[in-house]
Design a protein around this nucleic acid. Sequence first.
DNA 1: TTTGTAATTTGTAATCATTTTAATATAGGA
DNA 2: TCCTATATTAAAATGATTACAAATTACAAA
Lengths: 139, 139
Amino acid sequence: MHIERMIRRFREAGLKITPQRVAIFEYLYTSSSHPTVDDIYAYIAGRFPSVSLTTVYNTLQTMVSLGEIEEIAISHERRNFDPDTKPHAHIMCVRCKRIEDIYTKNLSENCLPEDVRNRYRILGQRIYFYGLCSRCSAE
Amino acid sequence: MHIERMIRRFREAGLKITPQRVAIFEYLYTSSSHPTVDDIYAYIAGRFPSVSLTTVYNTLQTMVSLGEIEEIAISHERRNFDPDTKPHAHIMCVRCKRIEDIYTKNLSENCLPEDVRNRYRILGQRIYFYGLCSRCSAE
DNA sequence: TTTGTAATTTGTAATCATTTTAATATAGGA
DNA sequence: TCCTATATTAAAATGATTACAAATTACAAA
Ligand SMILES: [Mn+2]
Ligand SMILES: [Mn+2]
Ligand SMILES: [Zn+2]
Ligand SMILES: [Zn+2]
């Protein structure tokens, strides 16, 4: 499972397994997708009342540099984290702010002209759409 | 020209035309594409040594809400502004940080599955690619 | 041209998310 | 169990952005 994988990755990197870190793993892989720092902190603080925001920031940063989660910049006012690192796009409802995953194949082939793909060695992409979801449209 | 257009748009909105604002228009439409707040401020300060950063922020915000420029969130460490509001994608070299425009037709048709387009009323998109440009690859 | 006034600019202070620091606590190997 | 490097915590620092209030200015009407 994902949590065991993260524990192994941290071990391999010579990092220690702490209850705070495990709780962050658990939250990331079992709860609402694309949580914010505050979402994560709120959950962890429920289990470890003395946890520090710094720990949340540090752990997320470590996971990003291990390539195990990604930061989503779809919203200007929040930082969302995505535990799914398979290439995929996102769509956010501008009203209710819900974020949905979009899995399309050949994302970069579809969107990038030949000549750009020749001039760059492509390393990643972030594809965000904005719209009104059906629930929010209905009113 | 673009600058005259902006002056007209500001007038129509009941906003006054000040030298600082005109200088910001000029810089946005004649200089390097996708400038940052600091790029703009550095230029304006060259012409109006007493200009305040606040004025730059305010004017940019006004232009965004008039729909005349857009904010590009391709980089986590800078805010870039784009005076070109036609739908287009961007690619940034992860090394030299240069940002290039990519014009592709039918961006959302290519990237968005049918069912997503049915469930949302699409209002916008931000499509960013990351890679190594040829110049940076060569070394 | 002059004047009046509402809008704008400016400098400063406040805010807020994130990072840094240093002291304390702990994971985990010996 | 003990030792020590690493992690956690609380507090302070940072830095980008925003809010505020006083001084200035655009511009329309006289
Ligand atoms: Mn996702
Ligand atoms: Mn552009
Ligand atoms: Zn919605
Ligand atoms: Zn480059």
